[in-house]
């Protein structure tokens, strides 16, 4: 219980502070919605939000395609090639963000690729892809391979098997993977900070700037909105009916 308090105390204070009239936090000086009102008219924040959503959507799509393929191959085949494959897919999960961001930055600089939305998408796809694979491999382990044999036995061809058997049964796994990828992408700061170029700022990078140089109260309000959105997504995903088994 104490651990839960430790986890939530800062968040609760943040929410309270976002309604505090005091500009630099501190003691309670009265209730206000002013900070939220200021956010509504803030064009750079809106641009950053749109950019964040674009980046997250595209990276989620790519990492879902790559991750599904990788999970399937890793599940289906064993051998030397797959051990290498496994290592490459899983290593990014334990590499510190700053290292991954640095190495990608060096690649883009050396290859002469201009930093911008494209480089952010490449970077996000790379780390989201590992997580998607992780989630899907777990789902595939619960999957009964005999079902594929059964469908083949009843005359189905691969396109039918994919659309009628695999996708419906792996659907919840794909949704979970997509949700995770999207959230990770929206959340990422360190890697994005390193590979972002002018004009391709995402929301976390923008928030970072505000934290360093802007009004703390405004950051509080923005954070609360951001948090409310993530909590809503997570809670709905948890409340969705689970596949009975």
């Amino acid at each position: 219980m104490a651990a839960l308090l430790f986890l939530y105390l800062p968040i609760i204070v943040l929410v309270i502070q976002s309604f505090n009239t005091a500009r630099y936090g501190g003691s309670w000086q009265g209730f206000t919605l002013d900070w939220y009102r200021q956010l509504a008219g803030n064009a750079p924040i809106q641009r950053a939000t749109v950019n964040t959503l674009i980046v997250a959507s595209v990276s989620t799509f790519f990492s879902l395609v790559l991750g599904t393929l990788a999970a399937w191959v890793l599940h289906r085949y064993k051998g030397g090639l797959q051990r290498l494959h496994y290592l490459l897919v899983y290593a990014p999960l334990v590499i510190p963000d700053i290292l991954m961001g640095m190495s990608l930055l060096l690649l883009f600089v050396q290859a002469g690729i201009p930093l911008g939305r494209g480089t952010i998408i490449i970077a996000h796809t790379t780390f989201c892809f590992s997580y998607v694979t992780l989630v899907l491999i777990g789902r595939l382990q619960d999957f009964d391979d005999n079902l594929i044999d059964a469908a083949l036995d009843l005359g189905a061809r691969w396109p039918t098997i994919i659309t009628r058997i695999l996708l419906p049964l792996l659907g919840p796994g794909l949704a979970a993977g997509a949700l995770l990828a999207f959230t990770l992408s929206v959340d990422d700061f360190v890697i994005t900070f390193l590979v972002a170029g002018p004009g391709s700022t995402t929301l976390p990078v923008h928030v970072y700037g505000m934290m360093k140089f802007g009004s703390p109260a405004l950051v509080n309000a923005l954070s609360v909105l951001f948090m409310a959105a993530t909590f809503a997504i997570v809670l709905t995903s948890q409340l969705l009916p689970k596949e009975k088994s």
Partner: peptide, 15 residues
Amino acid sequence: NQRPINTVFQNYALF
């Protein structure tokens, strides 16, 4: 998938 032979699987393999 093109054989006139069908199988009843050990663990049933019902979808």
